[in-house]
Every structure is written in C-alpha cells, then in structure tokens.
Amino acid sequence: MDNISLLVLAPVLNVQLLVDGLLIGAIFALVAYGLALVWGVTNVKNLAQGDFVMMGGYIAYSMTLVGIHPLWALPVAVVVMFCFGWALYKIVIYRVVDKDLFTSLLATFGIAIVVQQVLNLIFGPEVMIAESGFEVGEYLDGGLTVSNVKIIAFVMALILALIVVLFMKQSRMGQAIRATSQNARAARIMGIDTDRVYAFTFALNAAICGAAGVLISMIWVIQPYFGTSYSIRAFVIVTAAGLGNLPGVIMAGLGLGALEQFGAFILGAEFQQAIVVGLLLVILVIRQIQQSRHRQVVK
C-alpha cells in the first residue's frame, strides 16, 4: 500500500487529514444531533435530514447573491428553517408521529424528494458555493493548510451545540422535550402539550440542519441532490452513538469525519462514501447482536 507508506514517511499528512476530518466532523455531529433529537422525542426517523441541510446552504447562497456575507445567513437560516420545520410538522409529520416506522419513513422520504426537486427548480442542478472570502492559514512550513472558514465553522458548530444543550437542560420547553422523550403519556398526564413539544422539536431540528447547511456551503459545495449523503452520515452517527447520548454523537461525528478522510486517502476517493455506508452496516450488525442478547434477558 503506497498510500500508507506515504502517511508513515510524511507524518504531516496525517495531521492534515485529521484536522480536515475533525473540522468537518463537527458539522456532521450537529446534523446527527438534530436527527437524534427528533428520533428520540417523536420516534420519526427523518430521511429528509440532509435535504434540510441543503436548504440551509441555499439560504446562505441566496444571501451572497445580494452581497450579504454568508455568516449572516446563520441566524436567518435558523429562523427560516425553524418556521419551515414547524409548518412541515403541522402539515405532514403530525399525521405520522404515532404511526408505524414504515409510514414515517415513507413520509419523510417523500419530503426529501419534494425538497430536492423544488431546490432544483429554483436554483438549477449546478453546484453552488457561498464564498466567505476568509484567508487560508499555513502551518508546519506549509505542510498543513487550514482554511479559516473551517475553523470558524467548527467553532460555530460547537457554540450551536452548546446553546442547544443549555436550552434542553435549562428552559421549560427543553425540559418538556426531555420529559416527552422519556414517556410521552406521563408527560401528557402532567399537563405537557406533547403535540406542541413534537412540533417544536421538529422545528428545532430543521433549524439546526439549516445552520449546518450554511456552514457546509461555506466549506464544501451544495447541490439539490447532495442532501442524501448527509442523511446517511447522520444515521450512521446516531446508530453508532445511540439516542440521547450527546457526547457519543459528538465523538462519533468527529470520528466519522476523520475516518472518511483517512479512508479516502488510503483506499481512494471512491471509497469516501462507501466507508460510511459500510460502517453503517457493521454497526447495524453489532447492534443486532447486542439486541438479540438483550431480548433473551427480557424473555
């Protein structure tokens, strides 16, 4: 393996791959956290997760068209996507919340397709970027280059995660969300309007995705159909970390980012996404084994 020997001969390459992986991994973690939130509270597996991310990206792109710096799109995307999420809940999601798994998967898959097609109609199929104009930093004698926008995105992702965690712990709504996720029926008996909690959770997730999309559009490229790969990543992270396990989600997100980079370096770029899907398979097998053991105890 020539590529592995390259990594041994030039250790700085490891640093580059690791840094790139971790910085992008933070954004994956953010998207995955949103998914875990909705999954845990409403038990809806949102297949349109990545497409919400793309919507956020297009909000940033649209703002650059009128000369506004894409970082300003962050609050805009949060607000717009929150409203979008709320509306979507009221129109579609609330009908499938207490239905079986298949119904909610089908509904969100349908939403994903509609979002993709609408984005394609409005913005066309070409890839777009939101240019931030930030400098690129060179470190370790030019062996390591890190674009400042990636660092900013990383910090933003952390801040957003922190805000969400504080919100969940401190605010009344956050407490209601947690109560509902623990036992929706008990929460209802205690006077919590669970329908409102569901709507809020779904909207919050859309807002988180929107913010992640803004960051993605400044770092990578966006295209109406690119959302699916973010959905898959989010599912991998959540299935690996488990629901309601924020430190786990963050670690899995960062790990996945780094793994993609190393995998693409060693095996070739064609394996970058194959690795993600392969990992999902492995995790599912492991989970299955764990669960079958668990079931034996329950019996």
């Binding site: 590529n3 390259l6 580059q16 791959l17 990578w220 490229v221 693409a264 370096f265 770029a269 064609e270």
Partner: peptide, 21 residues
Amino acid sequence: DDKLPRDISDMTATLTKVRAV
C-alpha cells in the same frame, strides 16, 4: 488514480495526496 463519487463535495484527501507526491 482516484475515482470521485457521484456527489463529489470533498476532494481534500485526494489533494492531500497530490501535495505529498
């Protein structure tokens, strides 16, 4: 000799290799 996936949004691994070789 890298083959990029259909939804290419990241080439950093390939370009890191380019920088090395």
